[in-house]
């Protein structure tokens, strides 16, 4: 069994990713789709707000209206299109979000620090959360019944609200709980690139050391990969834009973080 994270920028390659997944069942696929949320937010007159953390990480700020678009686009359009692509290929697939079950339970970020006009400021945390608990019983029921699961990165908050959660974090936490053979994180880059060279193999310790030298985005992915590898799961960070992304990752492409 494997967990596959399909980043938003690789969603255009879903037809080939789905075709490749036919031979790698069972799987749980966690998808992104932030760019599509932005597009639909604009169409609906909701202007996305991007905030920057003190360490320079830019992220989407999810207010109540933006959360509505998130649910519609991620748990609706994106999730069902992926499920449909898989069913077209004869793959049994059920699309859910982390709210269903519930599967992902998150703590809402009450307040966050952002940098505005070069100055630090505390603002309310919006409808984003940090995953605190993963319940795998429903997932196992589906997987054991021969279904693959496609999951949108939404969680149920501890106060019963719906929350937007980071897709990489969702896939990582699911992997630590489900203990799949592999967590494959597909994005629009080949893997971890250092001084222009692909880093092909890392221990969790090496991954953590390297993370601090990398730019925003890949650094947090690598920190999460290190955490998951520590739980005994092999993690691959690789390109989702090639013809056979899963097969290539399993054959050594990308950056492998190996449990030590």
């Amino acid at each position: 069994m494997m967990v596959v994270k399909v980043g938003g920028r690789t969603l255009g390659n879903i037809p080939l990713i789905a075709r490749d997944l036919v031979g790698h069942q069972p799987f749980v696929l966690v998808h992104g789709g932030g760019d599509l949320v932005t597009e639909y937010s604009k169409r609906m007159g909701v202007e996305p707000r991007i905030v920057t953390s003190p360490s320079g990480i830019r992220s989407r700020y999810t207010d109540e209206r933006e959360l509505e678009v998130f649910v519609m686009v991620l748990a609706g359009k994106v999730n069902k299109e992926i499920v449909s692509s898989l069913i077209d290929l004869g793959v049994g697939a059920i699309g859910i979000s982390g709210v269903d079950g519930p599967t992902l339970i998150a703590e809402r970020k009450r307040r966050i620090i952002v940098v505005e006009r070069g100055r630090r400021r505390i603002i309310p945390g919006g409808y984003t959360g940090r995953i605190e608990e993963v319940r795998t019983d429903h997932l196992r029921l589906l997987l054991d019944s021969g279904y693959n699961v496609v999951m949108a990165p939404l969680a149920r908050g501890t106060q019963g609200e719906m929350l937007n959660v980071d897709g990489d974090q969702a896939a990582s936490r699911l992997s630590s709980a489900l203990k799949p053979d592999y967590l494959i994180m597909l994005s629009d880059v080949e893997g971890v690139i250092l001084d222009g060279e692909l880093v092909s193999r890392l221990t969790p310790e090496e991954a953590e050391e390297l993370a601090v030298r990398l730019g925003a985005g890949m650094n947090r992915k690598l920190m999460m990969a290190a955490d998951v590898a520590r739980s005994g799961v092999r993690v691959v960070i690789s390109s989702g834009l090639v013809d056979e992304p899963i097969t290539e990752a399993l054959n050594g492409a990308g950056t492998h973080v190996i449990p030590s």
Partner: peptide
Amino acid sequence: EAEEIGEDWGE
């Protein structure tokens, strides 16, 4: 006095 708010990597 500002409360401690840890930075995390969530979206």
